[in-house]
């Protein structure tokens, strides 16, 4: 198969034809920050955290296929600041009380905020009115923390392949809905998968909250994406 050659921030990289910029970057040991992307799942390109620049144009690295001789900017300061702004926006659009959150320490949104050392968002807090939805015996849905990434809608399926989650309404009023009977029938393994699909603490498996002690959680000691940088060095 033909290899494509391209560069990211000046570093020479190779990719298989048809790979997206984000997949190709990771295969080359380069981290492009992402949030709504989930390995092995069809990308949605909705959060825009993975925005890169090529030929002066901005594109979502998770949906854009890489092409021959592409010159990609990833870590340019203005791109990084734009990503940080997106993270800050997600914080003020929901109600993120990290001290009370079961996902704290393992949350991808929080991990990005740590990576960018967000001390305070530049935008005013919205304090939207949202609910906690007890979704049967296995999981609960904490709408206050949902960032509408649709990872659950795209990826969480019941045994027979039916979708467990769906999206209601559009734009700022978008809301995740759950099929209560399918959610109740989830096996423990699938309920755990549903929780892991959710980048934040919006889908929670019941009775396992706060199970990992502070200090041992995924992003306590090292920033998100550092596993890739290690592979590179």
């Amino acid at each position: 198969m033909n290899k494509i050659t391209f560069t990211i921030d000046g570093q020479a990289c190779t990719a298989e034809a048809g790979q997206t910029i984000l997949e190709a970057a990771r295969a080359n040991g380069i981290y492009i920050p992402s949030l709504c992307w989930f390995e092995g799942m069809k990308p949605a390109g909705s959060c825009r955290i993975c925005t890169v620049r090529a030929g002066g144009r901005y594109m979502a690295a998770c949906t854009q296929p890489v092409s021959e001789q592409m010159v990609i900017e990833n870590m340019a300061p203005d791109l990084e600041d734009m990503r940080k702004a997106l993270v800050e926006m997600l914080f003020v659009e929901g109600n993120h009380m990290c001290p009370t959150c079961e996902k704290s320490g393992n949350c991808e949104l929080q991990a990005l905020a740590y990576r960018y050392q967000m001390l305070v968002p530049r935008f005013p807090y919205d304090f939207p009115v949202r609910r906690v939805e007890p979704a049967g015996p296995k999981i609960l849905l904490e709408h206050n923390r949902c960032i509408k990434c649709l990872r659950c809608v795209r990826g969480v399926k019941a045994k027979d392949g039916r979708r467990v989650f769906g999206a209601l309404r559009r734009g700022g009023r978008k809301k995740i809905a759950v099929d209560l009977s399918l959610a109740a029938a989830l096996s423990d393994r699938r309920a755990r998968e549903a929780m892991d699909r959710c980048p934040v603490g919006s889908i929670l498996k019941k009775e396992v909250g706060f199970i990992v002690p502070v200090g041992k959680r995924k992003y306590d000691a090292t920033p998100i994406g550092s596993d890739l940088r290690k592979a590179e060095g």
Binding site: N95, H96, M97, C98, P99, T100, L119, V120, Y125, F127, P128, V129
Partner: peptide, 18 residues
Amino acid sequence: ISLGECAIMGGLPAMRNG
């Protein structure tokens, strides 16, 4: 200096917002 989550974003007391 704004010290801690409550000073920065309201924290637990802000759960009454709304």
